[in-house]
Design a protein around this nucleic acid. Structure first.
Lengths: 171, 171
DNA sequence: GTAAAACTTCAAGTGAACTTGAGGTCAAGG
DNA sequence: CCTTGACCTCAAGTTCACTTGAAGTTTTAC
């Protein structure tokens, strides 16, 4: 839809699709959504600049870690329109995404490392575990310690205090 | 729809929904999908055992790191039907998921740590970077070095190494 | 005993991210 | 020039994970 930053817009939809391993329909969709830029030939066909490959690779990578197209679009918005983005332009995105990515990594590590421990004993506090901390749930439940996996408040209350390891699963 | 492992199925949909911070409709949906188990009252209402909380917490945590309900269902299938799952039952899931979770972590770390470096210079090889390695793309492109973000084969050919292979993979 | 709150099923709707298909046009090789 | 493959638009379909609404039933609390 909009003009690509570089004047050398020579790549077709199929070209860029092949290079990043996407379907042509996906490339058109991204163009429509404004995540990438194209110019049109006199006949109305899309042509992309080489930096589109870079954008698409970024889009794919970001998608693979769970970013939505809206989030990706927001990030790409920060890149300059008129010139090919520099290292610093991309680095700015890396910086702004860092906290979110760190949190995701923490969640994954928690699920990976603590799954057996936490679920097995049902004793992990919400505040101490990155695994179970959906933003909205944390907001609505905000009082006192909740428990990650297994016994919930009433169960814990019923059995013992702080370090309670009520463990019915150890049969 | 099937019977819960514990005979003390006393929790209603609303109870479990509140405790894990889910909507009642989601709980019913999971029940319908077979991810959790319930018994019915004479009046036809669902009742859940306490271990359902544990399952739901697991489902939520797994979903947050991008697992689909099908994948989660598969994992939960490995848990015993007749008794409350033990530490070891859950640990088995942790073990089988480990490689996938490790890969996801690697991707995230790559996006976090290498975004500026990789994209800025456009010089990272596919084989050396965890960021850009979607399974299917890797499978279809399987030959030679492809490049992560930025300059693609032809660009690289023009500038440096001659190990590039133009892949004739598409129609 | 009754009223309200929570439950029930079932069908349809939502939004994200595309894909598919129809019907037609463009561009490059021979 | 002409064929062939890739491109175009637009509308509709798909999958996932639910949510919403309607119409009715059950439980609980007083």
């Amino acid at each position: 839809m909009s003009t690509p930053s570089a004047p050398d817009a020579t790549l077709t939809v199929g070209d860029v699709a092949d290079r990043v391993g996407l379907a042509p329909s996906a490339v058109r969709y991204y163009d429509e959504r404004g995540l990438i830029r194209s110019v049109r030939t006199t006949g109305g066909q899309r042509r992309f600049g080489r930096d589109t490959i870079r954008r698409l690779a970024f889009i794919s990578a970001a998608q693979q870690v769970g970013k939505t197209l809206d989030q990706i679009a927001d990030a790409l918005e920060t890149l300059p329109d008129e010139r090919t983005p520099t290292h610093d332009d991309w680095a700015a995105i890396a910086t702004s995404w860092r906290p979110g990515l760190d949190e995701q990594i923490a969640r994954l590590e928690a699920l990976r490392d603590k799954l057996d421990g936490c679920i097995g004993c049902g004793c992990l506090s919400l505040e101490r575990c990155a695994l179970w901390n959906p933003d909205d749930a944390a907001a609505t439940l905000g009082d006192g310690a909740r428990w990650l996996l297994g016994e919930s408040l009433s169960d814990v209350d019923a059995t013992a205090t702080a370090t309670a390891v009520h463990d019915p699963s150890r049969s």
